[in-house]
Write a protein that binds this DNA or RNA. Structure first.
Lengths: 180, 180
DNA sequence: TGACTATATATCAAAACGATATATATCAAC
DNA sequence: GTTGATATATATCGTTTTGATATATAGTCA
């Protein structure tokens, strides 16, 4: 599974432009479990078009630049279903905020505090974002996944707030027997 | 912040070989918030060596292949601290399991069930892994971060188990007005 | 002896990232 | 009225990262 498959998935919900697909990753239903930028999405859509897994129509708009709207073909849906029924790869995560908290004793106390509060805000905003999704009359999988995201974000925000003193109390210069 | 910084961070805990650093990402204290494979770690260590941010000693071992043990230099620690005090990038996640659950209505019910149970096991194993870490007499940041990982993994496992019926009940062929 | 697992390092094509460029249009400010 | 900011929209490209593969030593188990 790669960005191409995710684009097919996005188009299985409905026709969309690259810009609109990006928004699904940024603030839409994919935001809490997959990331992709323009640099991945546009090339992916072009490859899908080459392989006839999607079609493309250029649409002129009033008071906005023209956009290219992509649609899933039958072959695209078949490909997507096959890919979705494979064995999933392990989750990949990369959190620089957590890295910084892990090495909190190497941070200035003001930076440590800043990181922590920004991270709490990040989870709170994530909850709002998921709450705002309109999932009425949609497949249960989408509701289920939104619920999972909310549960995880809420648990993270709760932990961070309830235990913030543990992080903030970290000494800057105590000796832990590390090389540092 | 990139893999080079993470390697410096790993070495700030103590001298280590590339293989040992990999284990920190795989089953060690980094496992729940950062990923890196050999293909990133070995080139990173070579670049760090070139820039004199680490030193390297080849160690012969009995009944095992020789290993290259890397140590942080003063310049390396300075670089690490500077990097750690920058603004963190947004979290990046990529979960194929959640993608599959999101598009659960396009999956065979047996695959849907398989995905769900494997994912519950994944979080349960993650909890065990974090529980097994020996963090005695270590900086509070490391305890704090382990606690965060546990809180998140437990919340995820709990949600998945308590709501599994919602996912499993997803119809395969209902019409949701999607392209699919 | 052969198969498997664990330790250990290395490489490389393919994929993805992320920063930048370009263009149109609205809105607010000065 | 024009500067600056924001939103929509597409595209490119050097750098980084991935993930699969190769290579080698050594212990274990059948």
């Amino acid at each position: 599974m790669d960005i191409k498959s995710l684009c097919l998935g996005a188009l299985s919900i409905g026709d969309a432009s690259g810009y609109e697909i990006k928004k699904m990753f940024e603030e839409g239903p994919f935001s809490h479990f997959y990331d992709a930028g323009y640099g991945s999405i546009y090339p992916a859509l072009n490859k899908l078009l080459e392989d006839d897994l999607v079609t493309c129509t250029e649409i002129e708009q009033e008071s906005r630049p023209a956009k290219k709207v992509y649609s899933l073909t039958d072959a695209g849906l078949t490909y997507l279903k096959a890919d979705l029924n494979q064995k999933p790869a392990r989750d990949k995560t990369r959190s620089e905020s957590i890295v910084m908290m892990f090495f909190g004793h190497l941070l200035s106390s003001s930076h440590r505090e800043e990181i922590l509060h920004s991270y709490i805000d990040y989870f709170r905003d994530g909850c709002t974002c998921l709450d705002d999704l309109d999932l009425s009359n949609q497949p249960n999988g989408r509701l289920f996944v939104r619920g999972l995201g909310l549960a995880v974000y809420e648990a993270a925000a709760k932990y961070l707030e309830e235990n913030k003193d543990l992080l903030l109390s970290d000494d800057e210069e105590r000796d832990f027997g590390d090389a540092a």
